[in-house]
Simulated scan of single mutants.
Amino acid sequence: MKQLLCFGDSNTWGLIPKTHERYSWGVRWTSLLQEKLEKHDIRVLEEGLCGRTTIFDDAYRKNRNGLESLPEILESNYPDAAVIMLGTNDCKSCYNANPYKIAKGLGLCVDELLKFIPPKNIIIVSPIHLGDEVWKEEYDPEFNRHSVEVSQNLFEEYEKVAKEKGVAIVSAADYVQPSKSDREHFTPEGHRIFADIIYNKLLETKIA
Rank of each mutant, 00 (worst) to 15 (best):
I197T: 15
S151T: 06
Q152Y: 12
V83P: 03
Q177D: 10
K206P: 04
Q152W: 08
A59C: 01
F143K: 04
L113F: 12
E38L: 13
L5F: 11
L5I: 11
L49W: 09
V134K: 03
N98T: 02
G66H: 07
A82S: 14
A82T: 12
I117T: 15
D90L: 03
L15A: 02
D132V: 01
K36V: 04
F155N: 02
K92S: 11
V150Q: 08
E156Y: 01
Y78S: 13
F116S: 10
E156W: 00
V148W: 05
Q34W: 06
G87M: 03
L45R: 10
V44R: 05
I16V: 14
G14P: 05
E38R: 01
C94H: 05
E133S: 11
E138R: 07
L37W: 15
D140K: 09
D58R: 04
E47R: 09
C91I: 07
A59H: 03
E157D: 06
N11E: 14
D90V: 02
I42E: 12
L106I: 01
A59M: 02
I128A: 02
F194P: 12
K160S: 08
P79C: 11
G14R: 02
H185S: 13
Y78Q: 10
Y78T: 04
Y139C: 08
K62G: 07
K92V: 08
H191M: 11
I16S: 03
T205E: 15
L108E: 10
D41H: 13
I16Y: 03
D90R: 00
L108G: 00
L203I: 09
A81L: 14
C94Y: 04
S31P: 12
S126N: 06
A103H: 00
P178H: 00
A173W: 01
N144A: 07
A172G: 10
S171W: 09
G14S: 06
E75H: 14
Y100I: 06
E137G: 00
L113W: 12
L49D: 02
N144F: 11
E149V: 10
D140C: 14
Q3C: 05
I128H: 03
N77Q: 15
H146V: 15
E38W: 05
I73P: 13
P99C: 01
Q34H: 08
V134F: 12
C50G: 07
N144D: 15
R192V: 07
E75F: 11
G107H: 03
K180N: 13
I123P: 13
V170N: 13
Q34E: 14
L33N: 04
Y158N: 06
V176H: 03
K120N: 08
I207M: 11
K36W: 01
V167Q: 00
P71Q: 08
E133Y: 12
N200D: 12
E184G: 10
S24Y: 09
L67I: 05
C6F: 11
G51D: 03
Y78A: 13
G8E: 10
I128M: 14
S31I: 14
K104E: 15
K163T: 05
L5S: 11
H191F: 11
S171G: 00
T19Q: 02
Y78V: 05
P119H: 09
L86V: 01
A97N: 05
A195M: 10
F116D: 04
E38G: 00
E46V: 03
G107V: 02
V110W: 06
T187V: 09
Y139H: 15
L33W: 06
A59E: 05
N96F: 06
